[in-house]
């Protein structure tokens, strides 16, 4: 009982209070001082920042383009992860564990060095351009483009998509597919009519598991993306540290949470069903 009370205290102090502080700061107005905020009860404007992030094209655009990038990343991850997971599930149990390890291991090698590797591949004097020039092709500007950013995002989030799909596909009853084959269904028909419908909750879970963290991504756009890729994560950091506009940063964080609520709710529902 005492233990539980202590844990309540830790969760209230460590999780609920910080989020409440974000909401409180979002209601303030940027001002000189420490912290650089004037609260409504000290004469600050109460809803300016919230109105700003909900109406200003720059902030609305940042939210929308974050959702777009996250959706593209999640779709690409699922499209690549589905056949990968199928390949791993259909492998014999011996190699299966090693294939799964091969998907997970890069995940444990440190995220930043891997992004560093992509910088090395994409940069003007980098490896890909070296190969292009070797074959007599013109060098390309690749680093700091949307494409480089998306490649980095898919690379970073791919294992998140493989794992839930692997879990769902592993549980499928192979007899259903055999039955379909006996009744004359070809490989494509079996995939579309037997495997895909059964895997649908896993596909949705994999999509959301990538989409939700990708929407707030900061590091990858910063390292690989163009300066014009003003995604929410980047704008929050900029507003907070460079412009020292804490209320706008906090309001934008709240905005991100609000747009992520529907996918979170959906993910929760998938979890309770499965």
């Amino acid at each position: 009982m005492i233990g539980r009370a202590l844990l309540w205290l830790v969760l209230t102090f460590g999780v609920a209070t910080p989020l409440a502080l974000v909401a409180a700061i979002a209601l303030g107005e940027a001002a000189e001082g420490i912290p650089p905020v004037r609260f409504p009860w000290n004469g600050g404007a109460a809803t300016d920042s919230l109105v700003l992030i909900a109406t200003d094209p720059f902030y609305v655009g940042a939210l929308l383009s974050s959702l777009e990038v996250a959706a593209l990343t999640a779709a690409a991850c699922v499209a690549l992860a589905f056949p990968m997971a199928l390949g791993i599930v259909r492998a014999r149990p011996g190699p299966r564990i090693w294939l799964l390890a091969a998907v997970m291991l890069p995940f444990w090698t440190g995220f930043l060095p891997r992004m560093g590797a992509w910088i090395g591949l994409f940069r003007d004097s980098g490896w890909i351009n070296g190969v292009l020039v070797e074959f007599g092709l013109p060098a390309q500007q690749m680093l700091y483009t949307d494409a480089a950013m998306l490649v980095g995002m898919v690379h970073a989030y791919l294992p998140f998509a493989v794992l839930p799909l692997f879990g769902v596909l592993l549980r499928l009853d192979p007899r259903l597919e055999e039955a379909a084959a006996d009744l004359g269904a070809g490989p494509v028909a079996r995939l579309v009519t037997v495997v895909l419908p059964q895997a649908a909750p896993g596909i949705a879970a994999a999509f959301l598991l990538v989409f939700i963290p990708a929407a707030g991504e900061y590091v990858i756009p910063e390292l690989l993306g163009p300066p014009s890729a003003t995604l929410v994560g980047r704008v929050v950091v900029q507003e907070f540290f460079q412009n020292r506009d804490w209320p706008v940063a906090a309001a934008l964080s709240l905005g991100l949470l609000v747009v992520l609520l529907p996918p979170l709710w959906l993910y929760q529902r998938l979890g309770t069903q499965g």
Binding site: L19, L21, V22, P35, G233, V236, L264, Y267
Partner: peptide, 20 residues
């Protein structure tokens, strides 16, 4: 509350803990 840190975007977690 226990699950919130799993699903909150990193920037929100970082910002909220800094404010704390």
């Amino acid at each position: 509350l226990a699950a919130a840190p799993l699903v909150l975007p990193e920037v929100v977690t970082g910002l909220s803990l800094l404010l704390l």
